[in-house]
Amino acid sequence: MSKSSLLIGVAIGYVLGSRAGHERYEQIKSGASKVAQNPKVQAAAGRAQEAVGQQAAAVADVAKEKAKEKVASATHRS
């Protein structure tokens, strides 16, 4: 688990479990919004989304080839 995932999980847990009231919730929400709107965060999110898209395409290609191999193997057995 990456450090950012852990921090996000802790923040969500705190918000959901907090008894600090609405004011603290609004402070946390405002801070999270500021972080989300940060250009560096936006750029990182874009890069991550692009990387996931590339990996998904690569995995799909591998799965497609494996499926073709299985079909070919099954039809040659008959």
Rank of each mutant, 00 (worst) to 15 (best):
R19T: 15
A51M: 07
K34I: 12
A45Q: 10
T75R: 14
A60L: 03
Q37I: 00
A58I: 08
A44V: 05
H22D: 11
V71Q: 07
K34N: 13
K29R: 10
S5P: 01
Q49S: 12
V35E: 08
A11R: 07
K3I: 01
V15R: 07
Q55C: 06
L16W: 01
I28L: 13
V35H: 08
R77K: 09
A20I: 05
Q49E: 08
K68E: 14
G13K: 00
V52H: 05
A11G: 08
S4W: 00
V52N: 08
A36I: 03
K64E: 14
S33R: 11
E26Y: 15
K3T: 00
V15C: 10
P39R: 01
A58T: 09
E50L: 06
G9A: 06
G21V: 01
S73E: 15
K29Q: 13
V15P: 03
V41Y: 06
K29D: 13
A63G: 02
Y14T: 05
L7K: 08
T75E: 14
L6I: 12
Q54A: 14
G46Y: 11
A58C: 01
A57H: 12
G17S: 07
Q55R: 12
A36N: 02
G21C: 03
A20H: 07
V59L: 12
V15Q: 04
Q49Y: 05
Q42T: 06
E65C: 03
Q37M: 04
L7I: 00
L6G: 00
A45T: 06
I12H: 10
V15L: 14
A11V: 13
G31R: 12
S5L: 07
A11T: 15
I28E: 06
V35N: 03
Q54Y: 03
E23D: 14
Q49A: 14
G31L: 02
G53F: 02
K3C: 00
V52E: 07
A57V: 04
G31F: 00
V15F: 12
V52R: 08
V71M: 06
V41N: 09
V62Y: 15
I28D: 05
A20F: 06
V10S: 10
S4L: 07
K70H: 11
E26K: 15
S30G: 12
A45C: 10
K70I: 15
R24V: 15
A60C: 02
A60Y: 00
V62N: 10
S73Q: 13
A48G: 14
Q42W: 04
